[in-house]
Amino acid sequence: MLIIACPYCGPRPELEFRYGGEAHVARPVDPSTLSDEDWGAFLYQRANPRGLHAERWRHVHGCGRFFNALRDTTTDFFAATYETGTPRPAGTPADGETSR
């Protein structure tokens, strides 16, 4: 069972969390100006990297809040967790790079 460090509550077992999809996906300011392709891409196209991946998690059986996490999809180790609305921590490799 994974251990996930909620930035508000501290490390908790995986059972308390729910996955929330890719992080840092900004909703277009004015969707009506977007082409169908761009809108479709915003809605459906997500990265699926092998290696580090910035994603959202929700501490659903705890504080209930969303936060962001950097998880290596090959090893399931979390490189960092950080509050929603804050940028990705400096010094971590880019998406898709492996943590090793």
């Binding site: 251990i3 996930i4 460090a5 501290g10 490390p11 180790f77 490189a79 943590s99 090793r100």
Partner: peptide
């Protein structure tokens, strides 16, 4: 040991 990450998320309890 792998060089990166330097520290891993681990329980503190």
């Amino acid at each position: 040991r792998p060089a990166w990450p330097p520290t891993r998320a681990r329980p503190r309890t």
